[in-house]
């Protein structure tokens, strides 16, 4: 797919904003036009966070998404809030260890991965967002695995670079997961 309008949403602390940032950075490394817009409004005070990411071959117009081609949700309220704005034929990826219900939409592809549970088993619960991103890039091909790894190097501080091999394992897990 040439263009992706992605919303990633969940609780503060789940790495929602950083997942979007790595994705946008990887898009930039793939020479695409990108934008990343975090929620910074009152919803942050309620403990939820989301970001809008656009990765496109064309110049990015508005960075605010009124509709999305892909949605990643890491809690129930996020699915309630954003399910309706996914385009027909789009994608919803949910962390099935935290989001109990299935989307009501029948015109989108839905992928459930118990990402938080798997990340705990891998020994690092902060990998849940990476597992879900793995599924996103596998399904959409919006960026390559190599660009993702390069983006991790660029966005993580040097003291965390030792984690990159494990993060890539988490990404691969998400890419190849099937229920």
């Amino acid at each position: 797919m040439a263009d992706q309008q992605i919303i990633i949403s969940g609780f503060g602390g789940q790495g929602i904003l950083s997942a979007g940032r790595i994705l946008a950075y990887a898009g930039m490394l793939e020479k695409k036009n990108v934008s990343w817009l975090p929620s910074y409004g009152p919803e942050m005070r309620g403990g939820t966070a989301n970001c809008h990411v656009i990765i496109s071959d064309e110049a990015v117009g508005s960075p605010i998404l009124n509709s999305a081609t892909s949605l990643i949700v890491m809690n129930g309220p996020s699915l309630d809030k954003f399910e309706g704005i996914v385009e027909s034929g789009g994608i919803i990826i949910k962390d099935s260890s935290l989001v109990e219900r299935d989307p009501n939409r029948k015109d989108v592809q839905v992928y459930g991965i118990p990402a938080t549970k798997v990340a705990f088993e891998m020994g690092n619960p902060t990998f849940a967002n990476i597992i879900l991103l793995g599924k996103l890039i596998e399904v959409t091909k919006i960026i390559s695995k190599e660009a993702f790894e390069e983006a991790l190097k660029k966005t993580l501080p040097a003291k965390k670079h030792h984690m990159i091999p494990d993060e890539m394992k988490a990404l691969e897990y998400g890419m190849h997961y099937s229920a």
């Binding site: 940032r21 036009n33 990108v34 934008s35 990343w36 817009l37 910074y40």
Partner: peptide, 10 residues
């Protein structure tokens, strides 16, 4: 505005 201040772009 806050969109321009908060957003990341190349």
């Amino acid at each position: 505005d806050g969109i321009l201040g908060q957003m990341m772009e190349v």
